[in-house]
Simulated assay, not measured.
Amino acid sequence: MRGCIVVAWLLLGERISVVALLHNSPGITLGERWSALAQHRKRREAGETPVQRVMSAEEASASRRTGERLRRLEKAARREDRIEALLVLERDGASSSSPAEQAELAGLLRARESFEEQYDASSFTPEHVDFKRQHNEAFASLALRCHNNGDGGYSGGKFPNVFYLDGPDAATTTALVKRGFPLASCFVANRHASTVEILRGILPSENVAHATAAEALTSGAQGGFAELEFAAYYFDGCGGFAPHVVGMMRAALLRPGVRRTLSVAVGFSLTGGRSMIERELVICRALSEIAGIMGMRTRHAMDDPARYEMPRDILKTEGKTFTTWMLLEEDK
């Protein structure tokens, strides 16, 4: 089932609205979603505070992400093993491969292709290329500012670690390197094996996680970055699903036991063209809630790009793509 189901009911005269987001998560059944709703109700009845609810939700999500990633990787490995076995039969001659096996091979190859990278920078218009360039510049500038605790200008020393999503063109990595960032400070996640292979040819292999952003930042994830401190995050290429972006932010910012910088930059993109204002509002409010838990407050960096050494003519939208930047600072 795609999309979402909004479930509302009355309990003791109180109207309680719960949104259950059913979004093609492998291994997550409708029954498990209803179980989560029941747990949510119990926590409300137990008097759990808003902060406790957010932290409990993130703990449950972290456990689910770890299982989802493992299942996806295991399924992909089994698929590749079976494809190889069927290709051996096909190479041995048609007589070695039955019609059923040939059909199975065709289906497995289609399944493999559906998980290949769909990001194609060669199709971008010149305006979109410039839009991406501006936001990669903003990412670098904000990361350096946060690394220097907001004093403006880079004063030398160690470059900060940054986390982001990158495509096969490695455009964000290239932009960071041009600003002086060492490859060792750049950490990337991508769930497409073909793109991971390309990025590992540029960055240190251990800096590229074959995972979603949330999975790579979850404690206990093999090959992830849950123990690292980052000055800035760029969740580009997130699609149009606001809860997906919120999940990435919670995974990144509510990790237990990780020392954080005094200020943190967070950028995110949305696509789709419709209801982007409402979706931005949902994400920014969720980020403000996360910041409050961290003892921080949010600031819209794009309200004053010159102050933060971002391109002065930077835009929030280009075509059907929306990108913005938020700063999390100590709430003094």
Rank of each mutant, 00 (worst) to 15 (best):
H40I: 00
A94G: 14
T321P: 00
R65S: 03
E14W: 07
Q52V: 02
L10M: 09
L70M: 07
D331V: 02
I5D: 13
L203W: 03
R64F: 06
S17T: 15
S56N: 12
G31R: 04
E116Q: 09
A20S: 05
L30G: 13
S95W: 05
L217W: 02
A38T: 10
Y119I: 14
G27L: 04
V51R: 11
S63T: 05
A171N: 13
A38E: 09
F225H: 12
A306Q: 11
A76C: 01
L254H: 09
R260L: 15
V18P: 00
G27N: 00
S35F: 01
L228I: 11
V282C: 02
V258F: 09
V188T: 13
E318N: 02
A36N: 10
N149C: 07
W325T: 10
H40A: 10
E84Q: 06
A111L: 12
A231P: 08
G272A: 13
S122A: 09
S155A: 14
P160F: 00
E215P: 11
Y119P: 03
Q222K: 07
W9Y: 13
S98C: 02
E59K: 12
I293V: 15
A62Q: 08
L142I: 12
A94K: 06
R133F: 06
A265V: 12
L217V: 05
S56E: 07
E215G: 13
P160N: 05
P168V: 06
T298A: 06
R250T: 13
L327P: 07
Y233Q: 08
E227Q: 15
L262E: 14
S63W: 01
E215D: 14
G152W: 02
E227V: 10
C186R: 14
E58T: 15
A216M: 02
G93E: 01
A62L: 00
P126A: 04
R285G: 08
P204E: 10
E329H: 00
V264D: 04
V51N: 09
S35A: 12
F124M: 11
A106I: 05
P99M: 05
R200D: 04
G27Q: 01
S17K: 02
R91N: 12
R191L: 04
M296H: 11
A231H: 05
A301V: 11
A77H: 00
R78K: 11
V208H: 01
A60G: 10
E117Q: 04
S114H: 05
G319S: 03
E215I: 08
S63E: 08
S122Y: 04
H128N: 04
R82Q: 14
A36D: 13
